[in-house]
């Protein structure tokens, strides 16, 4: 499994590096350009990006695999399907944890007042949980319907994640401030939701394995 984890690292590390640059920019922005301790606008917009970054890194990684027939090569090598799935899910989990922790780090360094930090943390964890769900779900989609369909769905999904919070704020929730939206969301049992997402993520591993195994049966050749 670790050979595969190492092999799959490139695309995920590439996105993590891109994220690190993004974080530096935001740290600079919230501390120097706009040091407002009552403004949670950047938290509202930035936290959902964990979904975007992880799905984009899965997309980039699978694009490379698809282009080079990477799964075909792996099928010829002495490696179990479960090792392939575990390596993929490991990276989804790892990047989600790193990005979520990174975001929480940015908020800790921001001039946000102490009372808001807890909300920011919960709001970020909530999206971290959702990311695990969407990340695991992406692999189910890939193993069931193939990369092409995943690519189409991922494109629409990523645009929604990118523009969704802003569009919602501008249209549906235009009378609510970012702070109010975060407070409302964190009234949900976020810790429970995160654990539930993690549990579902773990359940998705055997599901992905079954789909990958059954995918062998689809065509003659």
């Amino acid at each position: 499994m670790w050979t595969l984890v190492k092999k799959f690292s490139f695309m995920f590390i590439f996105y993590l590096a891109a994220f690190a640059v993004l974080l530096l920019y935001f740290i600079h922005d919230v501390r120097i350009n706009d040091p407002n301790p009552n403004d949670m606008g950047f938290v509202y917009v930035l936290s959902p990006y964990v979904i975007w970054l992880v799905i984009a890194s899965i997309w980039g990684h699978e694009q490379v695999e698809n282009k080079n027939r990477g799964y075909h090569l792996l099928a010829e090598l002495p490696v179990r399907n479960i090792s392939i799935i575990l390596a993929k899910f490991f990276w989804v989990f790892f990047t989600t944890v790193i990005i979520t922790a990174g975001l929480m780090g940015v908020y800790a360094f921001s001039p946000l007042k102490h009372a808001f930090l807890g909300y920011a943390r919960e709001y970020t964890l909530f999206f971290g949980g959702l990311t695990l769900l969407f990340g695991g779900g992406s692999y189910l989609l890939i193993f069931r319907f193939g990369y092409s369909l995943f690519q189409k769905i991922a494109l629409v999904f990523l645009v929604l994640v990118l523009a969704g919070p802003i569009l919602l704020h501008l249209s549906v929730w235009k009378n609510l401030s970012s702070e109010e939206l975060i407070f409302r969301l964190t009234r949900l049992p976020t810790t429970g939701i995160v654990f539930l997402c993690f549990a579902v993520f773990l359940i998705l591993i055997p599901c992905a394995l079954r789909l990958k195994e059954s995918h062998k049966e689809l065509s003659k050749g």
Binding site: V64, K67, N68, R69, G70, H72, L73, E76, L77, P78, V79, R80
Partner: peptide
């Protein structure tokens, strides 16, 4: 015993798959 067989078998497919870059 898929893994064990692949350890002990040298396989060459119709169109070998490699990472182009």
């Amino acid at each position: 015993d898929e893994k064990e067989i692949k350890q002990r078998v040298g396989y060459v497919g119709e169109e070998p798959a490699f990472y182009g870059d």
